[in-house]
Amino acid sequence: MMRISTSGTRRRWMLGTAVCGVLITGCSSGGGDGGDAKPKAKPAAEAKPLDEGALRPLLLTQADLGSGYVQVQEEPGGEKFDDISVQGCPALEKLSQSGEEDMFAAKAQASFTYDRDATLGEEVHSDRPSVLSSKLRELFGAYTSCPTYTMTSGTTPIEVKVSKSVTPELGDEQFAYTSTMELPSGAQVLKTMVVRKGNVAVMLVGAPALVDRHIKTAVGKLPAGS
Results as ranks from 00 to 15, higher is better:
Met2Leu: 14
Met2Ala: 13
Arg3Asp: 12
Arg3His: 13
Arg3Thr: 12
Ile4Thr: 11
Ile4Gly: 07
Thr9Pro: 01
Arg10Lys: 08
Trp13Cys: 07
Met14Thr: 14
Gly16Ile: 11
Cys20Ile: 11
Val22Phe: 06
Ile24Pro: 00
Gly26Glu: 15
Cys27Lys: 10
Gly30Tyr: 08
Gly32Lys: 12
Asp33Pro: 06
Gly34Val: 04
Gly35Gln: 11
Ala37Pro: 02
Ala37Ser: 13
Lys40Pro: 04
Lys42Ser: 12
Pro43Ile: 07
Pro43Cys: 04
Ala44Asn: 08
Ala45Arg: 12
Lys48Leu: 14
Ala54Arg: 15
Ala54Ser: 14
Pro57Ile: 03
Leu59Cys: 02
Thr61Arg: 00
Gln62Gly: 04
Ala63Cys: 08
Asp64Tyr: 03
Asp64Trp: 10
Leu65Phe: 01
Gly66Val: 02
Gly66Thr: 02
Gln71Val: 10
Val72Tyr: 10
Gln73Ala: 14
Gly78Thr: 10
Glu79Val: 09
Lys80Asn: 07
Asp83Cys: 08
Asp83Glu: 15
Ser85Ala: 13
Ser85Tyr: 06
Val86Thr: 11
Val86Trp: 06
Cys89Asn: 06
Pro90Ala: 10
Ala91Ile: 12
Leu92Glu: 05
Leu92Asp: 08
Glu93Ile: 08
Lys94Val: 09
Lys94Gly: 12
Leu95Val: 11
Ser96Phe: 09
Ser98Trp: 03
Ser98Pro: 11
Glu100Cys: 09
Met103Ile: 04
Ala106Phe: 08
Ala106Gly: 00
Tyr114Glu: 03
Arg116His: 05
Arg116Ser: 10
Asp117Gly: 02
Ala118Met: 01
Thr119Pro: 04
Leu120Phe: 06
Arg128Cys: 09
Pro129Gly: 05
Val131Ala: 09
Leu132Gly: 12
Leu132Asn: 07
Ser133Phe: 11
Ser134His: 13
Arg137Ala: 14
Thr144Leu: 11
Ser145Phe: 06
Pro147Thr: 03
Thr148Pro: 03
Tyr149Trp: 02
Met151Asn: 10
Thr155Gln: 15
Pro157Phe: 08
Val160Asn: 04
Val160Arg: 04
Val162Thr: 13
Val162Trp: 10
Ser163Glu: 14
Gly171His: 09
Tyr177Asn: 10
Tyr177Glu: 11
Thr178Trp: 09
Glu182Asp: 15
Gly186Asp: 11
Ala187Asp: 15
Gln188Phe: 09
Thr192Pro: 02
Arg196Thr: 05
Lys197Trp: 04
Asn199Asp: 00
Asn199Ala: 01
Val200Glu: 03
Val200Thr: 01
Ala201His: 04
Ala201Asn: 00
Leu204Trp: 00
Ala207Val: 03
Ala207Leu: 03
Pro208Trp: 05
Ala209Gln: 06
His214Gln: 01
Ile215Cys: 02
Ile215Tyr: 05
Ala218Gly: 07
Ala218Val: 01
Val219Gln: 00
Ala224Phe: 03
